[in-house]
């Protein structure tokens, strides 16, 4: 097993492979994932670096995943339920118009009267469809192609143990494979790295306060790039940082 946690304070990723209890021949990929924030002390101030969303990638070599065994994969129901409420409203409007007129001319009075009536009736039908959805937030949620997204419901920073002796998925060895290996990677996009300033004293607060939003955002990119460069050494920054990686090569089957 080879595990590399680039930043000990931020992320700890451990993977193990154990035989599954049932059924026979299947293996469990057990993952431990612990996340926290870390500080970097500068001259007069301090930066706190934390993560709000992380993606876990798994690569299987010489193995295939067992359908329906992935963690955090709520299956959508084939059917959805809706309540239908039908209300019927009858509207009957009545109107009655009446008029009378009188004419007078030199030959004699001429009187006349007229009246008219009208009854209107209308039926209005209204249907209201009410759909009930139960929203469940999975802190570790399966995405397509053996990826898992780790995030809090309110996108706040990740802090704590998210996986511990949890089977991320089950898999079976492919027949006649040269080797069987599991590779895991925990990566974070730079937009999900939060860099906040920790106030040591009032003077340091003033130091940070003088930056506008544009400057602060660009400094964050600079710091994220520095973190990536510290991990990777050479190579170009592409906006994503690999915090931890682990791989296990399984011994041949007897």
């Amino acid at each position: 097993m080879n595990t590399r946690n680039a930043f000990s304070e931020l992320c700890e990723l451990v993977i193990r492979v154990v035989p599954s209890e049932t059924p026979e021949g299947e293996l469990d990929c057990i993952v431990e994932l612990r996340l926290a924030s870390g500080d970097v002390d500068l001259d007069e101030e301090s930066c706190e670096i934390s993560i709000s969303k992380l993606t876990l990638y798994l690569d299987l070599e010489g193995a295939i995943p067992v359908p329906g065994s992935r963690l955090g994969e709520p299956r959508k129901q084939q059917t959805s339920e809706m309540d239908r409420v039908t209300t019927q409203e009858n509207k009957v409007a009545t109107a009655f118009n009446a008029s009378a007129h009188a004419n007078l001319d030199i030959t004699g009075p001429a009187l006349g009267a007229s009246a008219s009536g009208e009854v209107k009736a209308a039926v209005q039908r209204e249907t209201v469809l009410t759909r009930h959805d139960r929203l469940v937030h999975h802190r570790v949620k399966a995405l397509p192609n053996l990826r898992w997204e780790v995030r809090e419901e309110d996108e706040s920073r990740l802090d704590g143990t998210y996986l511990e002796s949890d089977s991320l998925m089950r898999f079976t060895r492919t027949e006649r494979a040269n080797r069987t290996a599991v590779l895991a990677r925990a990566t974070v996009r730079q937009r999900d790295v939060a860099i906040s300033q920790v106030m040591k004293d009032p003077l340091s607060w003033k130091y940070f306060e003088r930056f506008n939003t544009t400057q602060r955002r660009l400094l964050n990119i600079f710091i994220a790039k520095s973190i990536d460069s510290a991990v990777r050494g050479n190579g170009k920054f592409v906006g994503e940082i690999t915090l931890s990686s682990a791989n296990i090569e399984l011994p041949d089957e007897e």
């Binding site: 097993m1 080879n2 595990t3 590399r4 946690n5 680039a6 930043f7 000990s8 304070e9 931020l10 870390g38 500080d39 970097v40 002390d41 500068l42 001259d43 930066c47 670096i49 600079f222 710091i223 520095s226 973190i227 510290a230 991990v231």
Partner: peptide
């Protein structure tokens, strides 16, 4: 198992300053 330096060790605070 290979790990694992702290942020303080890996980042160069002077560069950031």
């Amino acid at each position: 198992m290979k790990s694992d330096a702290s942020l303080q060790d890996l980042l160069n605070p002077e560069d950031i300053e």
